[in-house]
């Protein structure tokens, strides 16, 4: 049995299935920690432990978000958007392959166009969240206003990454990177 991936497929996996998925999966844990941070439900020692985990978690998520968009934009995307020479096999040129048929063109015109832009909001917002958690620390447990703002920005960051991830998965199904 041989399990193999091409160089390009390996990068597509690193970008989407490893980095992108890690960010999306980590959101649930981070959200639970933020919601349960309220000092009403936690002891002082519990809050300190939760904030320590949150600081590490949100920093890791911010780094992962940056790595996801950087690998996506500067490594995988150039293969996606490359112009094929005349008479080339379009399966090696995903954007051109999608645009070659009316039934798949919208995957590029709407899906990819949205994904490639909206994805970049995720690391900006995730960095702000990581900074706010790090700077505010245990005060987050007492300050409901700031905690709510962190939760909302964290959720918007997740939603933008989820939109990008969802369209990335569908587009890679319709016109895979080989």
């Amino acid at each position: 049995m041989t399990l193999s991936l091409t160089y390009r497929e390996t990068w597509a996996v690193i970008h989407g299935m490893m980095l992108g998925s890690l960010f999306l999966l980590a959101y649930a844990g981070g959200l639970a920690e933020l919601i349960n941070l309220s000092s009403v439900w936690s002891t002082e020692a519990g809050v300190i432990k939760r904030v320590r985990r949150l600081k590490i978690g949100t920093r890791v998520m911010a780094v992962v978000a940056w790595l996801t968009v950087i690998t996506g934009t500067y490594i995988v995307y150039p293969w996606y958007r490359a112009n094929p020479p005349a008479g080339a096999d379009l399966t090696m040129f995903p954007r051109s392959l999608l645009l070659s048929k009316p039934e798949t063109a919208e995957w590029h015109k709407f899906g990819m166009e949205w994904k490639e832009h909206v994805a970049w909001l995720a690391p900006i917002l995730a960095t702000a969240v990581a900074y706010m958690v790090t700077k505010y620390g245990v005060r987050l447990a007492k300050d409901a206003q700031v905690r709510r703002a962190v939760i909302v920005l964290f959720t918007i960051s997740f939603c933008t990454a989820a939109i990008a991830g969802l369209f990335g998965a569908f587009i890679n199904k319709a016109a895979p990177i080989h």
Partner: peptide, 21 residues
């Protein structure tokens, strides 16, 4: 330690970055 200026700055700057994009 009571100042919220630095976290507000980080939050608003992120909004500005999103708007500029």
């Amino acid at each position: 330690e009571l100042n919220n200026g630095p976290v507000a700055a980080a939050m608003l700057a992120a909004g500005i970055g999103c708007l500029v994009l």
